[in-house]
Write a protein that binds this DNA or RNA. Structure first.
Lengths: 151, 151
DNA sequence: CGGCTTATTGCAACAGTGTTGCGTCTATCC
DNA sequence: GGATAGACGCAACACTGTTGCAATAAGCCG
């Protein structure tokens, strides 16, 4: 497992320089993906990223996007999380956060990872299990949906 | 949303009687699926269930299994959880538990839902969000995998 | 700058998981 | 035993992601 090098500055150039430093090539596809992720407020699925860069770079293939998301994660630039049923969502590692996902309306709330510190301690103490709150989402019912419940 | 009627006795007949009581028909497919779930120690994916009943009932279709798992969940007999990357897993509602899933080896530990009570309180207080610890899994690294990490 | 090497790409096909339309069948009710 | 609506089998589709392979191009070196 490569050492995790967090990317502090969230500018595209900063990230691309990091890639060069790690020995990875800076290609058109990678530049487009990194720019899309930097521009994205919050998180995006692989297909959303592919769609977002398709206007400026129509030739970039879906499989290239998938392969690069995987590689960019391996290089410590991105992280992905599973939101329950649907596709995984990616965001910059520098902008790491956890997710609450509503089972009813599907909204994904971004919340600080520190909220899981107690759970982390408990799971480690009782099961020797090191939790990874960036990788999974907490499913449930959001406040607006709960208030419109049939009583 | 139908009232949730938990199934106390975990015998197949008990569950099937519950179905009849709710106005659902007891068909060969449903009987086979319920028996497979009662016999299963722990949880099973939809495809595992389909494979398990295929020996005794080769004619039961994959789509029937999927449709019935959904219906049995709607009737409060089963619940499903997402284990991260792969397929969802089902178990009897009477045997409800949460999951810790190792990102490295894939093992799924069953843990009591009570472990999430603190998290539940926090999320409700800070975000008005009611968490559903049966529906998502906590991803991370299990003890055996962590101890074999390259330092 | 121009060639070399190999990482990266596009393409196309595939795999896993789940969903759906539709005509047929059958569990339940009488 | 017949009627009726729910359940089923089939086949095709949708979504998300993966892979083999030949062609391309990024970085290096002179």
């Amino acid at each position: 497992m490569p050492e995790a090098i967090p990317v502090d500055g969230a500018t595209a150039e900063h990230v691309l320089e990091h890639l060069r430093h790690r020995g990875a090539r800076v290609t058109t596809a990678r530049r487009a993906i990194v720019e899309a992720m930097v521009n994205a407020q919050g998180h995006r699925t692989a297909d959303e990223i592919a769609a977002a860069i398709h206007d400026a770079y129509p030739s970039i293939n879906r499989s290239t996007v998938y392969r690069n998301l995987e590689e960019l994660e391996r290089l410590g630039v991105l992280v992905h999380a599973h939101l329950g049923h649907g596709a995984a969502t990616y965001h910059l590692a520098a902008n790491a956060h956890s997710h609450l996902v509503c089972e009813r309306c599907g909204v994904a709330l971004s919340v600080p990872t520190e909220l899981f510190s107690e759970l982390s301690t408990t799971m480690l103490a009782q099961y020797g299990f090191t939790i990874d709150p960036l990788h999974f989402s907490v499913l449930g019912i959001c406040a607006p949906c709960r208030s419109t419940d049939a009583p």
